[in-house]
Simulated scan of single mutants.
Amino acid sequence: MQTITALFDDYDDAADAVGELESIGVPSSDISIMANNARGWYRNTQSAAAEDAASGAGIGAVVGGAGGLATGLGAMAIPGVGPVVAAGWLAATAAGAVAGAIVGGAAGRIIGSLTDAGVPEQDAHVYAEGVRRGGTLVTARVE
């Protein structure tokens, strides 16, 4: 299994890339997306029933292309990175890191998660900084 990662300037472009990955057969459970939300562009306006369904499925449940991806997004604040919205396996790891992190620890855990998945450490630092500066990161585990 390899990890493929790309940093996008625009969330819509990243969401399109996720849709393309799904259309060629990459399972949704092997795709993650993380976007900076410092400007508050993403607001979770789902109904309570939708939120319950999403939480029951887990943060890694990204189903049905960009539409499903949007419903799977969860908001969190990552020390050293700032407010982000994320979905997928990397987001689940980051959420766990945030739960027990001291300041700066979660950003390090994102970098650690990427490096554990095979992303070179220097690249992982660039990706974390790219998200901090407003980018959107798409990561996929592929054969």
Results as ranks from 00 to 15, higher is better:
A53T: 13
S23T: 12
E20D: 13
A97D: 11
H125P: 05
T139C: 15
A97S: 14
L114A: 07
M1F: 13
G130R: 09
A140C: 09
A6Y: 13
T5C: 13
V138G: 01
A140S: 10
L90S: 04
A101W: 10
R133F: 06
G118Y: 00
G64F: 01
A54Y: 01
A66L: 09
G19K: 02
Y11D: 14
L114H: 07
A95P: 00
G56K: 01
G67C: 11
A48V: 04
R43C: 04
Q2E: 09
S28R: 06
E143V: 14
R141V: 13
G105P: 09
A70T: 11
L73E: 02
V98F: 10
Q122L: 07
L90W: 02
A66G: 06
E121F: 03
L7W: 10
A91S: 01
A49C: 02
A99Y: 12
A61E: 01
L21G: 02
S23P: 08
M76D: 00
I31F: 05
T139G: 14
V142I: 15
W41F: 15
A17I: 14
V119S: 02
A75T: 14
G134N: 10
G40R: 06
I110H: 02
D30C: 09
E121K: 07
I24R: 15
L69Q: 01
A49S: 04
V62E: 02
A86I: 07
A91D: 03
E20A: 14
A50W: 10
D52S: 05
A107G: 15
V126W: 08
T115W: 02
L137P: 04
R132E: 05
G58E: 00
R43Y: 06
Q2C: 06
F8K: 08
